[in-house]
Structures are given as C-alpha cells and as structure tokens.
C-alpha cells in the first residue's frame, strides 16, 4: 500500500523565486490497484509520482510504502526499498551500450543470483513481454514499443510490488499504446503488481485504471473510482478531460452554427442523456416514448465499457406537449439517468 500524506514540494526557479509544485497532496493507493493520475503539463503529476520512490524528495509530508516511511531511511535502506519499486519512463531510458539482455539483467547485478540464474530470469522476463527473439539486439535497433517492453522487463527484474509508469505511452502511436496497456493490465492480473500510471491522455486512463486522481496546479481536484469519475465528473477540469475522450460532446460545437436538423425547432428540447449508475437495463427510451406520448429523435449515441460497465449516453431531441416533455425528463431523472438540457426551444409563458 502506498500512502502519500500532506505532500508539499517547492522548487526555486531561475529567479530564486519559490514555486510550489505540490500543494498538500494526500493519496492512498491500495495493493494491486491500477491507479491513474491525470493532468495537464505542469500539474505536478510527474513530481508526485517521483515522490513515491523519492527521486524527488518532498519538502514536507510523509511517504509510506507498506508502512515504511521512506523519508526516515538511510541511503542504503532507501536503495534497498527502491529495488521493490519498478519504474518506466516516457523516453524508455535504456542503456544504449548494452543489449536487450544486458539491459534487463542490469538491476540483477548485486542480487546474489548466479550467472545461470540471471540468464534464466532474464529469459523468463523477455518471454513475459514477448521479446524473446530480441535478446541480443541493441536498443538502437528496436522500435518504440519494443523499447518500452524491454524497459518493463527491466523494471520487473527484482520482482517489485509496485510499478510506476511516468507517461510511458505518451511517445507511442495509438496501436503500440494499446499493446503496452494490454501488457500492463495482464501483468497486474497475473502478478498482482500495483501500478501507478501518469498520463495526460484520458483514453489511457479509461482503458486500464480502476481509480484515478485528477491534478491541476499541484493539487488533486478530484479523485475516485474510474466509473464514477466518468459518469459523474464534478470538477470542471475533469469534465474537460472527459470531453476529450467522448463523442457525446461533439454536438456542442456544431450547435453554435445553428444547423438545420440539429438545432431544436420551436417546442423542441435538445438534451444529453447519460448513464450515471452502473446497472441500467430498462429500455428507457422506448418506455418514455410510449408512456408520455413524446417523440425522441436520437441525434448521437456513444457508449463504451469502462471498468466493466457502460459509460456514455445519447443526445436526443424531445418533441411533443410541453408538460409531457417535463414529465418524461423527470421520469428519466427518477431512474438515475443524467439529463442535461442543452437547448430548450419551447416558448416560455
């Protein structure tokens, strides 16, 4: 378990002014979780993740891994604890003068293992990341995805309980990113390893994380279960991030141009209906049409599975008697459907 309590980190910039990179951040990450931290550049997420293995030393606060306070350790003890935490980076950081085998074996030098045992272990790891045939290649001969796989194998060499991923997929194309995320998820399931993932891409978070924290200007502005965050974002920054990954908000831009067929005509109401709870199985749209005698024109639908449950919804135009439209909207709200009125074109009395 990783506990960061009241972490404050200040730097002195070029002009000797104090910059607060982290302002009293506290998060707890449970065993075998895949915890995501998202934010824009400069939000403090890289600094925060580096406080976990003390690559950055917090100015104040507590860093506890399985109850051990890292800040109280001697240099030697800290080095020993670091061996239990693997880390992968955006630019891979493989040693160019060593082969793939050499890179993966690198952390094993003082582990007490003999030459044959190291060989066996390295080969097992390369097998795990599906790079057994590249044992004697040099990093310069590998693609980005392959380099990151080697980096992952290297990070796992000392059987760590935690893996820190600092924007590990930010330099990779979408397909390669997907394969790396798949690998990380597989490792989490197979080895039970806790993963802390830093990214600025919501798609990455959506793909494998179970809990996330959203950061802005050195603070955690929202935190929670990934489904809840996607279905019920509260902070405006969180909502902005979700918009980047969902098609449900595309229409908002188009609406500004008042295009025929999209914009609601007199008496119509344009709404966005979203799933906000995990089990929604009633055929709500057809029920509402029949029950309240209103028409629902579906303009857009976007649903995907996040953490095993559907997230998303539809953009719908209601038309019919004004009172009936209000009743229909209330009915949906009572059944835990999020109803956001985008544009109400009914004439107010």
């Amino acid at each position: 378990m990783i506990e960061l309590r009241n972490i404050v980190k200040t730097f002195k910039d070029d002009k000797e002014k104090e910059v607060e990179a982290l302002k009293n951040v506290s998060i707890t990450i449970g065993d075998s979780e895949i915890y995501g931290i998202i934010g824009f550049s400069g939000a403090g997420k890289s600094t925060l993740v580096r406080c976990i293995n003390l690559l950055e030393k917090p100015t104040s606060g507590e860093v506890k891994i399985d109850g051990v306070d890292l800040l109280k350790l001697s240099h030697k003890e800290l080095r020993s604890e670091r061996k239990k935490i693997g880390m992968i980076f955006q630019h891979f950081n493989l040693m160019p003068s060593r082969t793939v085998f050499g890179n993966v074996a690198f952390p094993l030098k003082k582990s007490g293992l003999g030459k044959k045992e190291i060989q066996k272990k390295v080969r097992e790891l390369l097998n795990l990341v599906e790079l057994s045939d590249k044992e004697n290649a040099y990093p310069s001969e590998l693609s980005g995805g392959q380099k990151q796989r080697v980096a992952i194998a290297r990070a796992l060499a000392n059987d760590p309980k935690i893996l820190l991923s600092d924007e590990a997929t930010s330099a990779l194309d979408p397909q390669t990113t997907e394969s790396i995320l798949k690998l990380l998820k597989h490792l989490n399931e197979k080895l039970g390893i806790t993963i802390v993932l830093i990214t600025h891409e919501m798609d990455v978070i959506k793909r494998i994380c179970s809990r996330i924290a959203v950061m802005e200007n050195g603070k955690v502005v929202e935190e929670g279960d990934v489904f809840d965050i996607f279905a019920n974002p509260k902070h405006s920054l969180t909502k902005d991030f979700i918009k980047t990954t969902s098609n449900l908000y595309k229409l908002d831009e188009i609406l500004k141009d008042d295009i025929n067929g999209i914009s609601p005509a007199d008496g119509e109401v344009l709404t966005r209906l979203t799933y906000i709870q995990k089990e929604v199985s009633e055929p709500l749209i057809s029920t509402v049409t029949k029950k309240f005698d209103v028409n629902l024109n579906i303009l857009l639908a976007d649903v995907e599975i996040v953490s095993g449950s559907p997230v998303g919804g539809t953009v719908v135009k209601f038309s019919g008697e004004s009172i009936k439209i209000d009743e229909a909207i209330q009915y949906l709200r009572d059944r835990h459907v999020g109803v956001e009125v985008i544009k109400d074109a009914r004439n107010p009395y």
Partner: peptide, 9 residues
C-alpha cells in the same frame, strides 16, 4: 534517473 530508481549507489 533510471539507475537511481533501480536503487544503484
């Protein structure tokens, strides 16, 4: 940085 994260002196 990578070497530090691996616990090298």
């Amino acid at each position: 940085e990578a070497a530090e994260s691996m616990g090298l002196s």
